[in-house]
Design a binder for these strands. Structure first.
Lengths: 168, 168
DNA sequence: TCGAACTTTCAAAATTTACTGAAAGATTTA
DNA sequence: TAAATCTTTCAGTAAATTTTGAAAGTTCGA
């Protein structure tokens, strides 16, 4: 397999994985493209490479920047904006997990808290089991949340170690 | 808030969370419904409660069973089939994570392995950086995979402890 | 202040995904 | 074996999401 072909395959597969996890195909593909590109790319280059429209490119690049895994680069003397992806996979994964927690899990936790305020006899069998289930979900989420925060905060992640091995 | 209302809210919110994670709304809602229902429910009851068609009910219940978080219950003397959800949230979460890994992540890992077989000079800067990135993803995935397997296999999970506290 | 070069927006169109309902299939009882 | 009861399938339809492309907006040098 040629390098170009391998890169294309990688982009395609990253796109599929993205859709399965609720991320749109194009966004995942742009991310993959920037991951395999050494040089930062302009909107025009991304459009040409993935054969997508200008609007689509713009929206998804912005979204990737919101997630904190792509950043805008300005080259001196160039009018165009260029984009580049965070290359450390550990950092990428942690940013994504952290962000999803903030955007998706936390709002649900707020609702769960409200659902525990139920009118009626707290000793009633049905009410008891409902509150207990909600509490279980909260406990699980808090536990998971703590675990993630711990990982994200790690100064020295496992990855730094493995990366150094590449230079023997 | 009344208990019935709280249950409905829970079902709605679970549905939203589901879609954000790439699971279809109805499937998540049926799961939520069975979670808050003490008694196993028949297809007809699920249909009535969520106002969905028979076909939709059948397909999503089957899918939930494939995921191993809902099971079929046969009541003696009853012709109908009833369904009930695994109530231990820890077990539910582990099954889901394990299953997604198997279905979605593992196939991608197979592809990644193939992508490393690139024609050309392995010392070429571009080839080197590409292979190194693929390797990084593999390392990360393997590490995460091991972590999950470890958690799933734990005989005594934290949750059992917190559950017992409910009985003081 | 103008206009060239570029970015952003968003309504409409295209695509993808989910749902319905009727028909076929299965299982049990008589 | 037939009828009754329940489950499964799937083609067609509906709904949701994504993408396009043209127009509006922005920035900057002259």
């Amino acid at each position: 397999m040629k390098l170009t072909e391998a890169k294309q395959q990688f982009i395609l597969n990253w796109g599929v994985l993205g859709t399965q996890w609720g991320i749109n195909r194009t966004m995942a593909q742009i991310h993959a493209l920037l991951l395999v590109s050494i040089e930062p790319m302009s909107a025009d280059e991304i459009m040409a490479e993935l054969k997508i429209s200008r609007g689509n490119t713009n929206m998804n690049v912005r979204e990737l920047m919101d997630w904190g895994i792509v950043e805008k680069i300005l080259k001196p003397g160039e009018r165009k904006e260029f984009f580049t992806a965070e290359k450390d996979i550990w950092v990428v994964a942690m940013r994504i997990i952290k962000e999803r927690k903030r955007r998706e899990v936390e709002p649900v936790l707020v609702v769960l808290e409200q659902l525990k305020e139920i009118e009626g006899d707290k000793n009633d069998k049905d009410i008891k089991q409902f509150i207990s289930m909600i509490s279980d979900i909260q406990k699980f989420s808090n536990q998971a949340s703590k675990g993630i925060d711990g990982m994200v905060k790690m100064d020295e992640h496992w990855f730094t170690g493995t990366l150094l091995k590449l230079f023997k």
